[in-house]
Design a binder for these strands. Structure first.
Lengths: 111, 111
DNA sequence: TTGTTATGTATAAGAAACTTATGTATGTTT
DNA sequence: AAACATACATAAGTTTCTTATACATAACAA
């Protein structure tokens, strides 16, 4: 993860949301997808990504399938059942977080 | 700071934005204000808040004035000139961050 | 043909931001 | 008298990241 500190803590949610949408993805693919969506602003570093994927797997939220494509190894990740349930929760938290931050940046008159 | 990891990294921006708006605030006041704005969802812990304030002060972004009110000490913080400039940058980053996260949660058809 | 870039995964050392726990002190409410 | 609210502070530990390094294959450029 790079840039303005703000992204700290959001990596897991990003990974899980992308997997929910795409079905399955491999690590490098995730970094490229995020770069594309954020127009180059957010570059997930390998040092952040791979430990995060391993941890989510260890927690039983992701499953792995190893494949060889064009003579290169790929590890495809997908959400487990538990992971799918947890993703719903995390996305709800993310939406609340965004709302709260917007309320801080652009305060309502009632405060 | 408490809750869903997501708030990690946003504390400094929150502090600076509130100070920009209010002119000056003391630590405890900041925690109450944030609790109010987020409807109790975000509780900034003292262990996070006070070191953050001290660091922003050390970086020259905040100034302090100590006052005694009702026989209790208060340390009022306000933005320095440098802090005011920096706040503009951080708020721009925050808005970009929010946009990017929204694009991830609610993807555009073009992806 | 040699170096650079892209693809693909991995880990170790260190930094940064937090949580949790504790401490001090005063005022108010139960 | 005890609990809660106000008000500050710090130390120990955890989590999450950055930075650096490592290995391996393929494509492209000098």
């Amino acid at each position: 993860m790079k840039n303005s500190q703000l992204y700290k803590g959001s990596l897991n949610t990003i990974i899980m949301k992308l997997l929910e949408e795409k079905g399955r993805m491999y690590g490098y693919e995730i970094t490229q997808k995020v770069k594309e969506i954020t127009l180059g602003e957010l570059n997930i570093t390998e040092g952040a990504l791979y430990p995060a994927l391993h941890k989510l797997e260890a927690e039983g939220l992701l499953d792995v399938e190893v494949e060889k494509v064009d003579n290169r190894m790929r590890k495809y990740y997908k959400l487990t059942e538990k992971g799918t349930t947890e993703t719903v929760n995390r996305l709800a938290e993310l939406e609340e977080f965004i709302k709260n931050m917007q309320n801080i940046v652009n305060p309502k008159l009632s405060y």
